[in-house]
């Protein structure tokens, strides 16, 4: 077998396992941080300071009964959570975790694949991910679930457009759809007068960054945009009828998507592995953690949107803003190239 193929395969396995491990502790950190913000203690019984809590949760979900409703569309009911779960980590394949390193005399690239359409690939996987939710909602034969599924579909179609368009500005500036290329361009130093700044796209695309952040929250169905599972109106929405490990697949998928989209945002807007001292994967991790903390912070702070407000925000506020951003960026790019 091709050595390159083998090394990216091994790297993919490592990334997948790290993601799954992180996911488990993401739930722990979320509960702890939320508890601190709400003046509670949070999980503290299982293991030292509750550190074994995710393992106990996982075991609990594993041994619970797997219930399939009588009227459910059985095959789709079984398929939907798997679809969600499989597609969530796949998008991480294009994220560059650093330059190549040498292991046992082989040069190993710290990314699974550098494809020339990485940004589009990411969006494509994201748009596939919602199938798990809508099919789960449909197959449950429960009207709350169906409503949750329909909401998820409408929400993701709307915010997918915003998400894609907010990236166009970055693509115009970088001239490439490859994430490796985008990161390389951001590691250059920008000199404006006496100031030495990193060429991160958050500085040249601040509006696109804010819009991307909002759309990313909606894309991952997190609070305050968690309308598909709004427990106060839809008693859990698309996953009402799911139990045991099938439910946890949806749960896992949500947290993995959160981590993956945080990594993606850090790569696109915050320069990825580029840092002030000693570039490396730790900078990427630190930046992703900032986004993850932001997710939790948002959840504890902002109440859930009403459904029409959610749609109004996407189509009446964010879409015009993002189009203006594309237009401006296009003109600036042409001016920069001396074509205007």
């Amino acid at each position: 077998m091709d050595a390159n193929l083998l090394s990216s395969y091994i790297f993919a396995v490592i990334v997948l396992n790290v993601l799954l491990g992180l996911m488990a502790y993401m739930t722990y950190i979320e509960r702890k941080v939320m508890a601190a913000m709400q003046d509670r203690i949070g999980p503290n019984r299982t293991g030292p300071v509750g550190l074994l809590q995710p393992i106990a949760d996982g075991l609990k979900l594993l041994v619970k009964e797997d219930i399939i409703p009588k009227h459910a569309d059985r095959r789709i009911f079984l398929l939907a959570p798997l679809l969600s779960f499989v597609l969530a980590p796949v998008a991480a394949a294009v994220i560059p975790f650093g330059d190549s390193i040498t292991v046992f005399g082989h040069e190993v690239n710290l990314y699974v694949a550098d494809i020339n359409v990485a940004v589009l690939y990411f969006l494509a996987i994201g748009s596939m991910g919602v199938f798990g939710i809508i099919l789960g909602g449909y197959a449950s034969a429960n009207r709350y679930s169906l409503l949750g599924g329909l909401r998820a579909a409408a929400q993701v179609i709307s915010y997918e457009i915003i998400l894609g368009l907010s990236l166009i500005g970055v693509i115009i500036l970088s001239g490439s759809l490859s994430l490796v290329e985008i990161v390389n361009q951001q590691s250059e130093t920008l000199t404006i007068g006496p100031l030495q700044l990193p060429n991160w796209f958050i500085l040249s695309q601040p509006l696109a960054f804010i819009i991307f952040l909002i759309a990313a929250v909606a894309e991952t169905n997190r609070a305050p945009f968690d309308l598909p599972e709004a427990e106060t109106e839809l008693i859990g929405g698309f996953h009402t009828e799911y139990s045991g490990f099938r439910f946890s697949f949806f749960f896992l998928a949500e947290y993995i998507s959160m981590i993956v989209i945080s990594l993606f945002a850090a790569t696109i807007f915050l320069g990825g592995t580029d840092g002030p001292i000693q570039d490396g994967v730790w900078w990427l991790a630190l930046k992703a953690c900032i986004f993850l903390f932001f997710y939790i912070w948002l959840r504890t702070t902002v109440p859930r949107f009403r459904y029409d407000q959610l749609m109004g925000l996407a189509w009446k506020v964010l879409l015009p803003l993002v189009l203006i951003n594309i237009l401006l960026t296009g003109f600036i790019r042409l001016w920069g190239l001396g074509m205007l």
């Binding site: 020339n116 359409v117 690939y121 494509a124 748009s127 596939m128 449909y138 579909a153 179609i157």
Partner: peptide, 19 residues
Amino acid sequence: EFLAAVQIIVYTGAVLVLI
């Protein structure tokens, strides 16, 4: 690759609307 990515983005969206 471009055609493949666009195929998935465009047609999965279309099928979603179909569903």
